[in-house]
Simulated assay, not measured.
Amino acid sequence: MSNIKEVAVNKIKVKEHFRPINLDKVDDLVKSVLAVGLINPIVINSDFELIAGNHRLQAYREIGFNQIECRVLDLLELEEQLLQCDENLIRLDLNVIERSEHLSHRDELLISLGRRAKVGDNQYKGSLGSQTTKSLAKDLGISRSKYYQIKSICKIDADVRELLKKTDVADNLDALMLIQKQEVLIQSAIAKRLTNGCNLRELIKDLKKEAEKERQLKELDTYKINFDNDNIKLFCDDFRNNKIEDNSVKLIWCDPPYTEDINLYGDLAKFGQSVLAEGGSLFCYIAQARLKEVIDLMCDHLTYYWIIAVKNEYSSGRDGKGIFISWKPILWWVKGNRKNFGRYKNIF
C-alpha cells in the first residue's frame, strides 16, 4: 500500500545510490515549484529512506521549505507482490499478453524497491542486487531482445488487451507486436473484428482505409456552407451515389485511390459522361503503371484529350519496377467536343 503525507525535509534519508545532483535541473524545479507547487510527490519507504525524487527534494531544500509531500510505500507488501509475480511467471499457462503484463508489473515493483538498474532512472541505480534487463531476461531463459518484445505488448490499450485475451492472438507474439504499433482506435477495431484464421495484415489495412475515409468525411462535414461562388458546389459523398443533375457540370477534378479495383475508373468515366455538360472536362490522377488499363476503361465513355505531368518534389520507386518516379500523370478527358479557349502548360 502507499499513502500521501507531509514529511519534514530534514527527516528524509538519501542513500548513496542516486546519480549526482544536476544543478540546472534543480534550478528548473525550484522555478516550477514556486510557480505551480509540487506536481509529483517524492517517494519514500516507511523508514523515511528516499526511493525516488532526489532532485525534487533538493529543490525544496534550496527554497527552504520545511515540509514536502511524500508517497510512502509499504515495502513488505511490495515484496509480497514481487514474490507472487515471480511465481506466476514460472507458470507455463500464461499467454503472451499475461506474461507481458506480469513483466511490466514486476519492473514497476523492482523500481519501487530500488532493485531495477535502468539507464536514466533515478532509482537505486548501481546498488547491490539491482537487476538489468539482461539479468531479468536470463532469469526467464530468454534473450534481452525477446524480453523487450514481450514487455512491449503492454503498449496495447488495456481494454483492448482484455478483448484480445479471448482470441488465438493472445499467444501470438508477432501478431501482438503488429497490433501494438497501431493507434488505439485501430487496436480496438482489430480486437472487435478479429476472427480465428483471418489475415491480420489485411484486416489492419482495411481498418486504416476505413479510418481515413471516416476522417475525411468528418473533415468535409466541417464545411457548413458551400463556396461563395454559386457556380461551385461541394458534394460530400461517393460519386457512385450520383445525386447530381445530368449535363450540369463543367469540370470534375479527382484523385481516385489507385490500389482499389481498377474498374473504379470505368465507373468514374461513366459518371462524367452522365453529369458533364457538352465540352466539359474530367481530370484524374493515375499511377504510371496502370495508365494503359485506365485509358482502355475510360475511353468507352469519354474522349481522351491530353496527359498532364505534375512534378514530384521527391523521386520514389514505389511502383515496384525499379523506376524512380519524378512526375505524376493526370489524364484529361472531355465529353463530346471541347472548344479551345486558350493555351495551357502540360507540366506543373
Rank of each mutant, 00 (worst) to 15 (best):
A158L: 09
R61W: 03
E210G: 01
I142S: 08
E80M: 05
D246Y: 04
L76C: 06
H17E: 13
K205P: 01
N3V: 08
A309D: 08
K31C: 01
L331I: 14
L34S: 09
E260D: 14
V33K: 02
D238R: 07
E202G: 05
L185Y: 01
C284M: 15
K181Y: 02
E77S: 08
H301F: 15
G126K: 05
N45C: 08
E293K: 12
G336R: 04
E80Y: 04
D159N: 15
T303D: 08
V30M: 01
R71I: 12
E79M: 09
S248L: 06
D267T: 01
I347Q: 13
I286R: 05
F324P: 00
L103Q: 00
I179G: 01
I308N: 08
G53S: 04
S248G: 03
I97Q: 00
L178Y: 02
A175F: 00
I12W: 00
S326I: 08
L163Y: 02
L82R: 07
A309G: 10
L164A: 04
F227A: 07
A52L: 11
S281Y: 07
D237A: 10
E219V: 09
R144A: 12
M1S: 14
K5D: 06
L83T: 05
D157I: 01
A35G: 03
S2W: 02
S46L: 10
R240H: 05
N10G: 11
I4C: 10
G279L: 07
V26N: 03
D86R: 13
L109V: 05
K134F: 06
R56L: 13
S32G: 11
R193A: 00
D238A: 04
Y314I: 09
Q58T: 15
I51T: 07
T133F: 10
K25V: 10
V30G: 03
E214C: 02
I4N: 14
A8P: 13
Y124E: 11
N22M: 06
K125H: 12
N40S: 10
L83A: 09
G197D: 06
R71Q: 15
V334T: 14
C236R: 15
D238G: 04
L109I: 15
E101R: 04
K138F: 05
E313Y: 10
V43K: 14
K250M: 09
V72S: 02
L140S: 06
N340G: 05
S135W: 03
E278H: 05
N241I: 04
L276W: 05
K15M: 12
E313V: 13
E108F: 14
L109K: 04
I232F: 13
Q149K: 12
S315F: 08
V30N: 07
E69I: 10
V275S: 06
I90T: 11
N263W: 08
R338H: 11
I244G: 06
V184F: 01
W333A: 04
I325H: 00
E16F: 05
V275W: 00
R144V: 03
K151N: 09
N346Y: 14
G126V: 00
K243W: 03
K270N: 11
V14A: 00
D27T: 07
L109F: 07
K125D: 10
S2E: 13
C284I: 12
R318V: 13
K125T: 13
K209N: 08
Y148F: 11
L78Y: 13
F271P: 06
E87G: 01
T259K: 15
D139A: 12
D139G: 09
C85K: 02
